[in-house]
Design a protein around this nucleic acid. Sequence first.
DNA 1: ATCTATCCATGCGTTTCGCGCAACAGTTCC
DNA 2: GGAACTGTTGCGCGAAACGCATGGATAGAT
Lengths: 313, 313
Amino acid sequence: MDVTLRQLTAYAAVARAVSFTAAAAELHVSQSSLSRAVADLERTLGMRLLERDTRNVRLTPAGAEALRIADQILSAHRAGLAQLGRYGAGERGAVALATLPSVAAVLLPPVISAFRARRPEMTVRLLDGLERSVLDRVIDGDADFAVSTVARRAPGITLRPLVRDRFDAVLPEHHPLAERAEVTWEELGREPFLAVGTDSSVRRMTDAAFAQAGMEANPATEASNVATVGGLVAAGLGVSALPALVHPLVGPGRLVRRPLVGPVVERRLYVVLPTRRTLPPGARRFLEQLEEFRSAADALPAGVMWEEASEDR
Amino acid sequence: MDVTLRQLTAYAAVARAVSFTAAAAELHVSQSSLSRAVADLERTLGMRLLERDTRNVRLTPAGAEALRIADQILSAHRAGLAQLGRYGAGERGAVALATLPSVAAVLLPPVISAFRARRPEMTVRLLDGLERSVLDRVIDGDADFAVSTVARRAPGITLRPLVRDRFDAVLPEHHPLAERAEVTWEELGREPFLAVGTDSSVRRMTDAAFAQAGMEANPATEASNVATVGGLVAAGLGVSALPALVHPLVGPGRLVRRPLVGPVVERRLYVVLPTRRTLPPGARRFLEQLEEFRSAADALPAGVMWEEASEDR
DNA sequence: ATCTATCCATGCGTTTCGCGCAACAGTTCC
DNA sequence: GGAACTGTTGCGCGAAACGCATGGATAGAT
């Protein structure tokens, strides 16, 4: 026979009250039940814990030691379950979120800030990288979910549209095209084009947009960092096209943005969820926080707009 | 319904094995039992811990957290019971032992040394004082038991004879009486007598011995500390009478000891046990160690001898 | 000294819990 | 398509736990 929590609970109550009757009232059980529980415990441990003459109850030295230890065990139990409860309520633990640098820097900060204010015991880990690595992190389980563009549907992940992110032309301050209210891809393609590195989702989309406008993508210069591209544009080396969400990362250079049309190209950002895995409660809460921002129609940068809430795909 | 150790044990085994069948074999229970236990746990916690398609079992994020916590709780339980077991075996804890300075300094050191060597996790607390405070400490429960003389039988304590401790005359090195092989109380009483303070058990007994020899106790000088008495004797101020066990405390002065006869007076030292209280296991072990010394007829100072083992009184 | 009010232990009958067995349902492998 | 495994679930049995009622013992009151 082994020592159950029930026995320890009973013993601790009796030992603390130094009375079976009082402890029974406290625990809302019968006195006989406690009497038996303690007797069983003593038999199992092979030591007398309480000295009882018919009138009084006293602790033996072993009983005092046992009370100490029973308290330790019971509080470990209580504390453990409380921890797990807080974890389950999404109040404790960590959210690991894979995302693109632009999303991390522009879209998420207010969400993270609100989330942390409400649940100070939660940690948010941002795993920022390019689209490919972002999706891999979700699939591999490094991240609980992602906010990212998605080139092609991959098995095992579910998509939930989040925002549409329009491409703008990025021009030097006094460039002729800067006088237009809107710029076409065809007009833009006639200028020296400064592109971001080939493995970027932005690059993939600009290439596709030029092709759709019947032009050949023909970058004058490439750079992997958008801030670098911004610097080059400001210096008058050419023009570029970037999604609206990226603009805050382009830097403080003397640039102007103009909506790109013919066609309007939008980058679609999704919440990327692993289909199989259960989402940790903390991550679920984080998504709820994100939804709150969506439904509050919170102000987004010009050219970025919330998608309608819709079914997962 | 609440979370039982049984459920946590079942869950931990299943989660670790990532298999109900394997865990069932390990725990020697049926697989169906584990299936139910885990299902119950999940229902109680209100969260899914294991993701199971008919072929595989995987942990959910909450499941991983729950495994961590279940392990904590179970190991607290295991460790607590192990501690209590060691306590019960007298391998852990403390022995509080009240005793007279002479016993503490002469009789006990080898016992304590052997005891600690065998049970390094045990602590021995020596509460040394005069007879009166020693008995009070046992009665009040400050000490687990005592080794002491006992003036009069007190209620609530049980006595077990330990050693007999003969009174010797203590004489300056070149005193005329020092030439005798033995000295009588009557002879001693004719010399200037140096006594220990009135509240000492030694003083009580010397007074009684002189009375029995038909003399009046008439101390020339009193001192509370036996080492002081020793110094006075060595300086030639008089003679004294001390139990053999005390001699090592008298100091390195130039003294001689001679057995006192007419009558032979023996101080009886008892193990003093509280009648009601259960003895802590460590204290019990300490007494066993003491008994070992007795039965090994271990060498005691001249004039001190073990009592025969006998019933408690 | 007797009586009364408590207190803990224990016998008994009932209910709940936990278990194993066996049948079942969904996968994977051959 | 069948064999071999997996976890789930219905069922019946046995043990565990509980409350009630009772009994023995004692402290305090009368």
